[in-house]
Write a protein that binds this DNA or RNA. Structure first.
Length: 329
DNA sequence: CTCGATCCCTGGACGC
DNA sequence: TGCGTCCAGGGATCGA
């Protein structure tokens, strides 16, 4: 299940193996996961892949500008509004691997694997193939403002976001921290595995409300998340069911999982049994001892809280009254 | 705003 | 062996 480290692994692999190659032709088979199949057939043939990068859980195949690739002075700037915006990222093919997507180069003579939905013939005799049994992935050719608008929908990059920014995003929401970590509008790239792993590391229960996190807790969580993501990238991601990189190699980070997929097994810190519950509709693995359950979730607790704060307010009012009376008298 | 439910899809696990 | 059933999960969408 490709999340940030897996997608990063694939993007780096592709950057090394297909950057600079030109796409000669495109063959589409199943297209129900493609935003606009016709645009892909129209725009990609003849184009050079300038660079491959990760954006959240997306692989971005950045296309060299037509001017560069053709080496011909095509018509001048198209900026009709007079604003010249030398957009670094003007055109790209976005690929989301979903749950089971695989994007990798193959020798042309290699038989097509089952569920090969897209083939890009490259100028060196190889083919870049997209294989995705479940078709939970997504593919889209986007350019200009459409591309910019699409990328703007996503939140901060987990490896670059500052502690302040992360704390602000997380602590300004009443949603549960697990849901916030998974919400691509908050952070881009975190999925179920790394959300659970970082919450365990920071000893934060997945059902905690974001706004209930103390600044220090938010800081610990981001540190844990970044450390885990970096290590996972170093180990080329986690291979749970079928993730492999562009060379067909599995990742190794699943060997480091502390809670994910370990329901019923002992917590590595305290030996309590790892539990799995549903939070935000996703299975969430955690240690019930290390990660204390929020008590603000229960009705009884919230009533208790309200009663307490009510008492506090009443006391303050009484104090103020008293002060007024004494100052007068 | 936040939630849960539902759908998409297939392969793998499991029960009989 | 061969069914049927259930489940996983990222994301979109919809109604509460």
């Amino acid at each position: 299940m490709p999340e940030l480290p897996e997608v990063e692994t694939v993007a780096r692999g592709l950057q090394g193996s297909i950057a600079g190659r030109r796409i000669l032709s495109v063959t589409l088979r199943k297209t129900d996961f493609i935003d606009d199949p016709v645009a892909i057939e129209r725009e990609l043939p003849g184009r050079q892949i300038a660079r491959v990068e990760r954006f959240g859980k997306f692989i971005l195949l950045q296309l060299a500008s037509k001017n560069d690739t053709l080496g011909v002075a095509v018509e001048g700037t198209r900026a009709g509004n007079g604003i010249t915006q030398p957009e670094a990222l003007a055109e790209a093919l976005l690929v989301h691997l979903g749950m089971t997507g695989n994007l990798s180069p193959h020798h042309a003579e290699q038989p097509l694997a089952k569920h090969t939905h897209v083939t890009f013939v490259l100028d060196d005799g190889r083919e870049l193939r997209y294989i995705d049994p479940r078709r939970f992935g997504r593919m889209a050719y986007l350019a200009g403002e459409t591309l910019a608008a699409e990328l703007l929908r996503f939140g901060a990059e987990p490896l670059l976001v500052s502690a302040e920014e992360f704390a602000r995003r997380v602590r300004s929401s009443r949603a549960r921290i697990k849901a916030l970590l998974l919400d691509q509008r908050v952070l881009r790239g975190v999925g179920n595995i790394y959300a659970d792993e970082s919450l365990w590391s920071a000893r934060i229960h997945p059902a905690r409300v974001g706004a209930s996190l103390k600044p220090a807790e938010a800081g610990n969580l981001l540190r844990a998340l970044q450390k885990i993501l970096r290590k996972a990238i170093q180990m080329r991601g986690s291979s749970i069911s079928d993730f492999v990189d562009v060379d067909g190699l599995q990742g190794d980070y699943q060997q480091r999982h502390k809670v994910y997929g370990r329901e019923g097994e002992k917590c590595f810190r305290c030996c309590a049994k790892v539990q799995r519950i549903l939070v935000a509709g996703r299975s969430s693995h955690f240690c019930p001892v290390c990660q204390r359950a929020p008590n603000s979730g229960s009705r009884a607790a919230s009533l208790r809280k309200r009663a307490l704060s009510g008492v506090r307010v009443a006391k303050k009012k009484a104090k103020r009254k008293m002060r007024l009376r004494t100052s007068k008298g």
